[in-house]
């Protein structure tokens, strides 16, 4: 009897339908899914390092794999997701690194803008260093 009387804790039902309740939840999830592509791409780089350590033949085979349609499709998707991650990450920097000069806070747009600028310059420098252009 006492068992029936005792209040049972409310267990919130666990569902995934919240995702579709608002576009911002969907955007949040898209951002979170970027981890699959960034993590997957990093594992691909590790596979590349493995082939590089095994000699010229293995490395050429790795480059050949990069030419497969599946690899190209993965790269295009990964590039889109990684870029989305960068944009959301830099847009959040004013929240993570608020900067105060004297009495005033540096405007959000200046903090994220500086990050976007560094990202652009760094990406171009990396591509140039690698001989992409």
């Amino acid at each position: 009897m006492a068992e029936e009387m005792s209040p049972r804790p409310y267990l919130r039902p666990i569902t995934s339908e919240w995702i579709f309740r608002h576009p911002r939840y969907l955007r949040y999830l898209v951002r979170e899914f970027s981890c699959l592509f960034i993590g997957g791409y990093t594992l691909l780089l590790v596979a590349g390092l493995k082939s590089l350590s095994e000699g010229r033949g293995a490395y050429e085979a790795f480059l050949e794999c990069l030419r497969s349609p599946a690899s190209i499709a993965f790269h295009v998707l990964a590039l889109a997701f990684a870029t989305y991650h960068s944009i959301t990450w830099f847009n959040l920097t004013p929240k993570a690194l608020p900067l105060q000069l004297g009495e005033e806070f540096v405007p959000d747009v200046a903090i994220s803008g500086a990050h976007f600028a560094v990202w652009g310059v760094l990406s171009l420098a990396l591509l140039y260093f690698a001989g992409a252009f």
Partner: peptide, 22 residues
Amino acid sequence: TAFVTPALIVLTLLAGLGYAPE
């Protein structure tokens, strides 16, 4: 990853498309 991953992906994508950077 926000700073360097997109550029790295472009490098191996170029290699996949037959324009392997030096």
